[in-house]
Computed example of a mutant assay.
Amino acid sequence: MFGRRSRVASEAPQSPAGPVHLEATQVGKDIDGAVLLSPTSLAVRSGECVVLRGANGSGKTTLLRVLAGSLEPSTGAALLDGAPVDERDPGTRARVGALLGSPTAYRDLTVVDHLVLVDSTWGGRIDTADERADELLATLEIDHLSERFPHELSSGQQQLFHLALVLFRPSSVLLLDEPEQRLDTHKRGLLTTILLERKAAGAALVVACHDPVMTEALADRVVDVSGG
């Protein structure tokens, strides 16, 4: 089911050099006495995937935000290669790509325009940006939507567009919050193949996922997350 090689396997964005080690030690979060995440620990290295499992509201998204450096934990610490994770730090931003909620989209830019903008932000070659963007969109099977605007996409198409925005930038860590949502069985298999290729290329993945087939294919370890 996951054996087909994607068209952009050899064209994956270049990640910052060197292996990575992302670790959370007894990370917890509470706000005004309400526990959003009970203390949780995990570690993931280059070429590995940790899948987060738990009921809705258990704290998976909160944990991913802590790992991305966008939310400060109430207890414990999250470290990337031994340094605190902080989205304001250029080193964190350069290495961590995350899909946590819906990314910002611009009403007057087409789907392919958004990818070219992402590419230019991360120092991509302007002369090949359109071609590489088209290849990724073809791999996700939405290349026929390249000239549409985000608000013209269906729910499932928007999810693939959001995934494309994250996958098109260089990163050595991918944090994905239920990337399978709103995707049919075929598209879930397609996404699984792409993520397996990113693992094989040396990326470290932490994925919150409810799909047992994706979990079985991707996970080196499964971490059960619970709230208060």
Rank of each mutant, 00 (worst) to 15 (best):
H186R: 13
A138W: 07
S46I: 07
H114S: 04
P73G: 03
L115I: 03
H151L: 11
M1H: 15
R125A: 13
A201S: 14
S70H: 01
L80F: 00
E141H: 14
L165N: 01
I126S: 06
L67C: 09
P73E: 02
Q159Y: 08
D134C: 08
A43F: 11
G3L: 12
L137W: 03
T62C: 13
D184L: 12
S102K: 10
S226G: 09
L153C: 09
M1N: 14
I31R: 15
E152A: 05
Q14T: 14
V166M: 06
T104Y: 06
R45H: 12
T75S: 12
P150D: 05
S41A: 07
A217T: 14
K187V: 02
D108E: 15
V166C: 10
H162Y: 10
K60W: 12
A129M: 10
P16E: 00
L163H: 00
V118M: 03
R88L: 11
L42K: 09
F161C: 02
A201P: 09
P39L: 07
R221N: 01
Q26L: 12
V166K: 06
M1R: 14
S10G: 15
H151I: 08
V96C: 04
G202W: 05
D134W: 09
P13E: 03
I142A: 11
V50R: 00
A133W: 01
D184N: 13
T25L: 12
L100A: 13
L163R: 04
L52P: 03
R93Q: 12
V35I: 15
L42V: 13
R132Q: 15
V35Q: 10
R95S: 02
L160Q: 02
E72G: 08
L71R: 05
D113W: 12
S15I: 03
G47A: 10
L71T: 09
V112H: 03
A138D: 12
A55H: 10
R221Q: 04
L160E: 00
V20M: 00
E87H: 07
T92L: 01
L136T: 03
D130R: 11
A94K: 04
L153Y: 05
F149T: 08
D224R: 02
L167K: 04
D211F: 00
E23F: 01
G101M: 11
F168C: 05
V66A: 01
R45L: 05
L109D: 02
D119A: 11
R4D: 14
L36F: 13
A12P: 04
G28I: 02
S46M: 08
A94Y: 00
P73V: 00
T110G: 04
D32C: 15
A208S: 13
H162P: 01
T62H: 07
H144K: 13
A129D: 10
G82C: 10
V66K: 02
P179K: 01
T185D: 06
R188M: 14
E216P: 07
S46T: 10
P84C: 11
A133Q: 01
L37R: 04
S38K: 08
